[in-house]
Design a protein around this nucleic acid. Structure first.
Lengths: 337, 337
DNA sequence: CTGAAAGCGCTAACAA
DNA sequence: TTGTTAGCGCTTTCAG
């Protein structure tokens, strides 16, 4: 609990000098520097983050906003978080996960008074109200995800369009012509308008039409039950379907069982490919689920970099970073890169 | 960005008066209150959290410490987080998830300078180094979990002992006499000494011995593969095993497949009971996995309450709150209470 | 190269 | 009931 003044007294210098050595703000002779350092050590000086923040208008804390409601904490989400935190720490910042109302209502008292230097948004919806709030709060921010039109916004995101097309093309090259896709219906929930699902769905429809393939879209309810029902619905709509894309981790097990019960072998009769999921998730199934693995860690890192660059004024242009998922087949044992 | 002084000027009162109406610290006549409120509205006054913190030595922020390494973010973890955050918010505090080194090394610069009023620890190990650090940092804290001896510490935790005994007794009452348990081996990882696994294991061994039952302990590797291997190992050690406890969510699918492949039907031949897991997790399997559901939300709430009581000085005695998991059978459709 | 001093925006005695 | 004012602990000109 030692204050800077106490350190100054002990070292026989002024408080300003202590501040200079603590922050490296100005040159101080090695001799005095040593005296100050010694005093700091003896007094176990830690520095008061709050006082520093008030005086300097910087806390070196950045907040990763997590919607308080209607949300799962998927492995990919947790990769974002961990990897962004790691990167922020490397660059001398703290990253905390901050639960906020998805509407962005309680966002102002977080940001006002400069408790955090900047903000990263995740779980972004097509028309996310939080970006407007942050914009007129004039706090620097970056998205993990994209709104409907994010040309003017700094973002990093999974390239869902490429991922979806790649998935279809990959399966096509294996000879598949009749596709299905299992999605989650978020309509009416707080996460309605969640961008990833909408992007995957529209890309799927467009790509299927363009290639003149068969494509059935079904929406699954929660959990394994939802997956089973989806399998039934899918097979009812197209009994000859051979390739199924899945954008709903918690229904994977049920989907597999549903297909099995309907006499389809996976992958002999039907191929299942999980989209934008994680390796850990894929490994929970047996045999392992083929997966387009989301580049969670890379994106977390990039998001932290983008925001911190912005804070440092180091960046001149808006970061617009898109990365597709990478295929990890059930039969390959190589870890995702 | 309006300051309190500006509001005071606009309302024709002193800054103290504004402070009083903002904080409700003192009685102010309705008339002046209204004038102040109006001024605040017109100037979009938000209040500077940092300045307030410096002056009052309270930030009303509490940190939930999450180990940066070797950690999954399980559904139960996420229930802790969400529900603690919710409760904190109800009581006028913010709860943020703060990633820190499991050794507690970077903990001081978080806490020093009063950036956070208090701290909740999760993922507690038997001899968690973080409690020593927090203790001599003199910051109020509460555990979700318990160290080896936590009589002197405020904590809330799952009652793993009761949960384990209840599980065995339940299965006994169904006629089972030959048990197995699948655990994770954390030895050598950063989470070595993780309390839940150790408590469950020792309680299992003791209860089995006491009841003169057969009990085989196996440690599973990661994911589905680990579960399959565990099934094989278990059946090799005791081919007549009929009841399996599972303390490792990510291997559940593999375990089921492993049992199936070895000719055991679940639940006809072998009962599987997942310990301290979540309903959502159980629902990912088909048929749904019988589960001792962890009281995640309740514990999160309690932890927040315990800490905030401590901060408010409202509490006189150490909170020691233990709650067992509750059984949710595969065949019941009633949600866990 | 180091020190003096004026804030940063707000809280909380103490006065009036 | 409201105002005055002295800090909270640190940063940052500006002098010396």
């Amino acid at each position: 609990m030692a204050t800077m003044q106490q350190v100054a007294d002990r070292a026989g210098v002024s408080i300003a000098t202590v501040s200079f050595v603590v922050n490296g703000t100005k040159y101080v002779t090695p001799a005095t520097t040593d005296r100050v350092r010694a005093a700091m050590r003896e007094l176990k000086f830690r520095g008061n983050v709050v006082a520093r923040a008030l005086a300097s208008r910087r806390t070196r804390i950045i907040a990763l906003l997590f919607p308080t409601t209607g949300n799962r904490f998927s492995p990919t989400t947790s990769e974002f978080f961990m990897s962004a935190a790691e990167r922020a720490s490397e660059r001398g910042h703290h990253l905390v996960l901050w639960p906020v109302d998805p509407a962005g209502d309680d966002l102002d008292d977080l940001v006002s008074g400069g408790l955090v230097d900047g903000v990263i948004l995740m779980e972004v919806r097509m028309d996310d109200p939080r970006v407007a709030v942050l914009t007129d709060l004039e706090v620097p921010f970056t998205l993990i995800g994209r709104t409907r039109d994010s040309r003017g916004l700094p973002f990093v995101d999974i390239d869902f369009e490429t991922t979806t097309v790649d998935s279809i093309d990959h399966l096509c090259s294996l000879g598949h012509r009749r596709f299905g896709i299992v999605l989650e219906d978020l309509e009416g929930t707080p996460m309605s308008g969640y961008a990833p699902h909408l992007r995957v769905e529209s890309t799927f429809r467009a790509a299927i039409a363009e290639r003149r393939l068969a494509g059935t879209v079904v929406y699954a309810g929660p959990g394994s039950e939802g997956g089973r029902a989806a399998a039934e619905e899918l097979l009812a709509a197209d009994p000859d379907v051979t390739a199924v894309l899945l954008m709903k981790d918690d229904s994977a097990g049920g989907l597999l069982v549903g297909l099995f019960d309907a006499g389809r072998r996976v992958p002999a009769d039907v191929s299942v490919l999980s989209l934008a999921s994680s390796a850990a998730n894929a490994d929970q199934h047996f045999p392992r689920l083929s997966t387009m693995v989301a580049p969670g860690r890379e994106l977390g890192r990039r998001a932290a970099d983008a925001l911190i660059d912005q804070l440092d004024g180091a960046s001149t242009e808006l970061p617009h970073f898109l990365l597709p998922c990478t295929l990890r087949s059930a039969d390959s044992t190589a870890p995702a890169p």
